[in-house]
């Protein structure tokens, strides 16, 4: 790795939790990415906003809840979490439903941010 090279990585999450493993496994990538001192941001679009809906109780489906991990992101200096405004609206959600502090942006604004990235990873 070339020393000191910092790239802008955006992780795009468009899938709901539990139904498939993508939400959990992309969170695992983000945690590892934190160790690389890169510029990391997360975008939650479409059903991806359900990943941050607070109040999961996964006991009944006998799966470990990984919601606390979203709350731990800040400890890893990952605090650029963007949530799509239109996606929240289409799902009857508001910023208050999110389990962590987020920045709510329109699709257009997220699209503009995406344009400034070096790497966009989608899961």
């Amino acid at each position: 790795m070339s020393e000191g090279q910092i790239k802008k990585f955006m992780y795009v999450n468009r899938k709901a939790p539990h139904g498939t493993i993508y939400a959990l496994e992309s969170l695992e990538v983000v945690l590892i990415a934190a160790a690389f001192d890169q510029d990391v941001s997360l975008a939650f679009l479409d059903d991806g906003v359900y990943q941050l809906k607070k109040g999961w109780n996964t006991k009944g489906i006998e799966v470990k809840s990984f919601q606390p991990t979203y709350r731990a992101l800040d400890d890893y200096d990952i605090n650029k979490l963007y949530v799509e405004k239109e996606a929240l609206e289409a799902r009857g959600l508001t910023e208050d439903d999110m389990c962590v502090p987020v920045e709510v942006l329109s699709r257009t604004e997220i699209g503009k941010l995406m344009e400034t990235q070096d790497i966009v990873l989608s899961f």
């Binding site: 790795m1 070339s2 090279q5 790239k7 990585f9 695992e28 990538v29 590892i32 990415a33 160790a35 690389f36 890169q38 070096d118 790497i119 990873l121 989608s122």
Partner: peptide, 17 residues
């Protein structure tokens, strides 16, 4: 480890998913 994915992103000119 997953670090190999991040490293690929840093070292390569393009990363295609």
């Amino acid at each position: 480890g997953l670090g190999q994915l991040i490293e690929a992103g840093i070292q390569a000119d393009r990363l295609v998913t």
